[in-house]
């Protein structure tokens, strides 16, 4: 394959990955890595390096809009970034010592988990009643604007959320993905943060988390400009088209169809990982 053909295929695939990732809320990274490794036979180390770059681009791009609207809780974001950046560096270092086959198997499992989590109906557990000592101490309680008024909320179970974020960061660094599904568990289910705030704050944190592992990957020579260029440009463009379409369409059916495709890709990753093809 020549450079120009490879670049065009990857560019088109990344566009699609970014588009679907944004429609389904899964993110582009979980789709581009199977595409590069399974379809184009790219070594998983290169695929992870390129994917982490696209995570920085898409998350920073959309975080910009949410921060301006005042929904993102910057204090919660920065407090939990301590956990995610430590995890991200650990994950990226761990990737050096792990057999690529194991990485593919872990990736497949997280992929299945994320697809199922995206299908589940989300329940808002937030309230403004419970008081947590650490939530006050770290000034995590806040309020967000919706329908013209401010909704105050409090944050619970801070240590539990912090440890879940450490885990999410480690997987992000190991697999080159944003691990949004795990961040949402930490914030929605454990810390009981309102859904709107947790989604936007998780997006806000992804950029720094991905940057922490990207510097390790860059240093290790895993970021190849020939792959990272079409992946970053394609995923960002696709994600932006996706977020515009999202405002106008019902995604329920699409999510279901897509979850089936994702689970098929995940099983393929696990199979190739176990049989030593990756």
């Amino acid at each position: 394959m020549t450079v120009i053909i490879f670049t065009l295929i990857v560019l088109f695939g990344s566009l699609l990955a970014g588009f679907l990732g944004s429609l389904t809320g899964l993110g582009g990274g979980v789709i581009i890595i199977p595409l590069l490794t399974l379809v184009l036979g790219v070594d998983i180390h290169y695929a992870i390096g390129a994917s982490i770059i696209s995570v920085i681009a898409t998350s920073s791009g959309s975080a910009a809009a949410y921060v301006k609207e005042g929904i993102t809780n910057i204090r919660i974001g920065m407090f939990l970034e301590i956990a995610t950046t430590v995890g991200a560096v650990l994950g990226a270092v761990l990737a050096v010592y792990l057999n690529p086959g194991y990485i593919a198997v872990v990736f497949g499992c997280i992929l299945i988990f994320s697809a199922l989590a995206a299908l589940r109906k989300k329940a808002d557990h937030s309230d403004n009643l419970a008081v947590s000592g650490l939530g006050n101490k770290f000034k995590l309680n806040g309020s967000y604007p919706d329908c013209g008024r401010q909704h105050p909320y409090t944050v619970k179970h801070v240590p539990g959320g912090f440890f879940m974020m450490l885990f999410a960061g480690t997987l992000s660094g190991l697999l080159g993905i944003g691990s949004g599904a795990l961040k949402v568990i930490a914030m929605d289910n454990i810390m009981r943060i309102p859904f709107k705030v947790s989604t936007t704050t998780s997006n806000f944190m992804m950029g720094v988390t991905a940057a922490a592992s990207a510097v390790v990957y860059l240093h290790r020579g895993q970021i190849d400009p020939g792959i990272a260029m079409p992946v970053a440009l394609g995923v960002l463009t696709g994600a932006q088209i996706g977020s515009r379409v999202l405002l106008r369409t019902q995604t329920g059916m699409l999510k279901k169809v897509f979850a089936v495709v994702i689970i098929f890709l995940a099983l393929q990753m696990i199979y190739n990982g176990l049989s030593g093809k990756i």
Partner: peptide, 17 residues
């Protein structure tokens, strides 16, 4: 028109890393 092969990981040299 150069050929590419990314099937085996070879770390980038310090030139790009």
């Amino acid at each position: 028109r150069q050929p590419v092969d990314y099937s085996i990981f070879r770390a980038q040299g310090p030139r790009l890393a």
